[in-house]
Amino acid sequence: MRPYLAMLLLLVGSFGIAARFDARQSLFTETREQNASMVTLLLGDSKRMLANHFMAKADAYFHKGYYPTIFDSPKTNEASHLIDSAQGNARAATNTAKVVVAHHEGDDDDDDDNFLGKPTDWIDKFGRHFFPSTHSHLKGQGEAREILPWLRISADLDPHKIETYTVASYWLRTQLGKPDVAEEFLREGWKSNPDSFELLFELGRLYAENKKDTPHAIRLWELALQKWIKQKEQGKKVDTFDLEQILVYLGRYEESQGHFREAIDYLKKAEPFSPAREQIHAQILDLESRVK
């Protein structure tokens, strides 16, 4: 009798364990589905760190391998040139800081960006012949595409890193002539970051500059403005540069439609945040003279 009782006990035990594991497995599967990928499951929060690394890798590719390591301290430009470049283009479009674009589109061998400094000894001096030691950027359609894999990987690892989407979109639509692919990527980013005004602004630029669908762009910029204000009201840290961009783009549209008063309103709101206040002020005065 005892062996049968033992068997029954084992059977009950097995069933209990199986039921227990099944519940855990369901939870595990649900979590995995939520996290969307095995990489996410394995890496956890460290994927954000890796995402930053791959974003920096894209920036290094933008400079053809000329990039500071953790042992080097960049003297002037602490922010990513890759992001600067995309933002600089927006600034130029709004006539606020053409200097930024001039730097990124022109001067390759800029002394300000020589993070290496003067060689400290013969090993340092000789070693510079064996790695990219002069400042240059990717040029043209052929080279621009080389940064894209790192941006894609960065976005996969951290879908909440907004710059990845906006930078990739900028390069895709301006250098590679792929606005549809850029839009798809931006919408993917928007899905992960529904409150992002940056993505809406970039999507608006895509519609205005590439698809020539200004009404659609305006709706996107207005939505971006609402999102910016909402986040500001919620006490979140928001960049006034983005606000200035949105307002200036909206102002330009109103001006093109002959709605000078609305244009003046937008530019007046943008003026305090603009790095080129004098230019904006001159534009306001010009518009006011046209209203009169």
Binding site: E146, L148, P149, W150, R152, L176, K178, V181
Partner: peptide, 13 residues
Amino acid sequence: SINFFDDDKIVRF
């Protein structure tokens, strides 16, 4: 073989 943004000419990566 991975396709990034429908671009098959990416080589440096």
